[in-house]
Amino acid sequence: MKTAVIVFPGSNRDRDMFHALELITGARPQSVWHTESTLPDVDLVVVPGGFSYGDYLRSGAIAARSPILKDLVAKAESGVSILGVCNGFQILTEAGLLPGALMRNAGLTFVCKEVKMETVNNATRFSSKFTKGQVWRCPVAHHDGNYFADADTLKQIEDSGQVVFRYADGTNPNGSINNIAGITNQKGNVLGMMPHPENLVEALNGGLDGRLLFESLLDQAA
């Protein structure tokens, strides 16, 4: 599986993502600077976590207007897999590739801890290696992860199975509506999630729970 990671000024989980992708796919991902105009021909494009542009204006708002986004939108339309994690999720919502918005955490504090995730839809290219209802561990580290969508949008994404991951066992760290932790677009080829699966892919670092997401994509690309 060929992969690429977009890097913005202020990205800080890009190296974690490179490492996880190389570990799991066996190939070094391509790094794409945000001012470039075209993405390479790959199976998966990742928008990594961090604090692009210092979260100025709104988290992800300025990065979502970067030159590379034009080609990311084109790739999304052509069906390429796109994964946005943390700030990447914020960027994808700001770019209009995913519905809703990520607001300040309900508790107002930055949260950095481990949560429980439930895979509520395993019929996506990002979640096929999970069992439906599987509860797994995943770290979070964010200040603006409080997912919000208006009532109509929420009903639409719930009814169409676009909610892939929810916070489980009372571990919602940010007040997200319906405990939403990760959603896809209508077509199912773009996923955004606040938790960091790339940080739980090695036993040495405390567990392998996050691997299943990348292995699902690997399976799809094979």
């Binding site: 204006l57 708002a61 207007r65 919502t93 700001e94 519905p99 918005a101 919000f148 208006d150």
Partner: peptide, 9 residues
């Protein structure tokens, strides 16, 4: 519409 406001919220 393009930047200053996120009209979703």
């Amino acid at each position: 519409e393009k930047l200053l406001a996120n009209t979703v919220i």
